[in-house]
């Protein structure tokens, strides 16, 4: 567990000190959300109705943009090979790096959503729902994304391919995130069912995705 924490701290420190990476994701999130009213017209009622969906879809895209960072730099400079040779199982290393991605990108994106909600005239009682579903759903985004990031390490045109591989896997997260918000808006006790499934998706991803990501990483090293 010691190695796990060390790797996690190292990745978090890198994410903070490298700079740029998080800012790019947040900036991308802002610009995508800001484009929507321009494309749809400034009808506030319409925007209020679709605001949670826009926030969620833009969050997926912004997270997608930052996924290659999980393994790319370590793959390029050879640290990944050192990690594979070290005492820490590659599965745990993949989990630590995915967790670092969630903390350094997933959480900031989720916390940024209410600010962007203002642009979309989000209803006041939807703010906590949006943040809660995003905090519960972003672990799935980081961990499932780590599979795609590991698979496309050696691929040509990896970025486009990553979107094609990972976005279908994100569909259940998106569906249950949105359905938790919309059912809670209809009745206060409608929230639990979808939210629990959303959390279950996240937990299953956290438990299983590192194995798939590690299998993909191992195949690169042979």
């Amino acid at each position: 567990m010691n190695g796990f924490m060390t790797l996690l701290k190292r990745d978090l420190a890198l994410a903070v000190r490298e700079g740029g990476a998080l800012g790019t994701a947040l900036g991308f999130y802002l610009i995508v959300v800001a484009l929507m009213p321009l494309g749809l017209g400034p009808d506030l009622n319409l925007l209020t109705r679709i605001a949670p969906g826009i926030l969620w879809v833009a969050l997926l895209l912004a997270a997608l943009l930052s996924l290659p960072r999980i393994f790319e730099a370590d793959h390029d400079d050879g640290s990944l090979d050192i990690l594979a040779l070290g005492g820490l199982p590659l599965e745990l290393a993949a989990a630590a790096k995915s967790l670092a991605h969630w903390i350094s990108t997933g959480i900031p994106l989720a916390l940024m959503a209410p600010v962007l909600g203002i642009l979309l005239n989000l209803e006041a009682r939807a703010y906590p729902l949006v943040v809660a579903t995003m905090l519960a759903g972003t672990p799935a985004i980081s961990f499932l994304g780590s599979i795609g990031a590991a698979l496309t390490l050696n691929a040509k045109r990896g970025g486009l391919l990553l979107a094609l591989l990972v976005l279908p896997l994100y569909v259940p997260t998106l569906i249950f995130g949105i359905s938790a918000i919309s059912s809670a808006m209809l009745s206060p006790d409608g929230f639990a069912a979808s939210f629990l499934i959303l959390s279950a998706i996240s937990l299953v991803s956290v438990a299983l995705a590192p194995f798939a990501a590690a299998a993909a990483l191992r195949a690169h090293m042979q």
Binding site: A155, L161, L165
Partner: peptide, 9 residues
């Protein structure tokens, strides 16, 4: 995705 991944490696 499967076909694209295979053709890109």
């Amino acid at each position: 995705g499967l076909m694209a991944l295979r053709s890109s490696i």
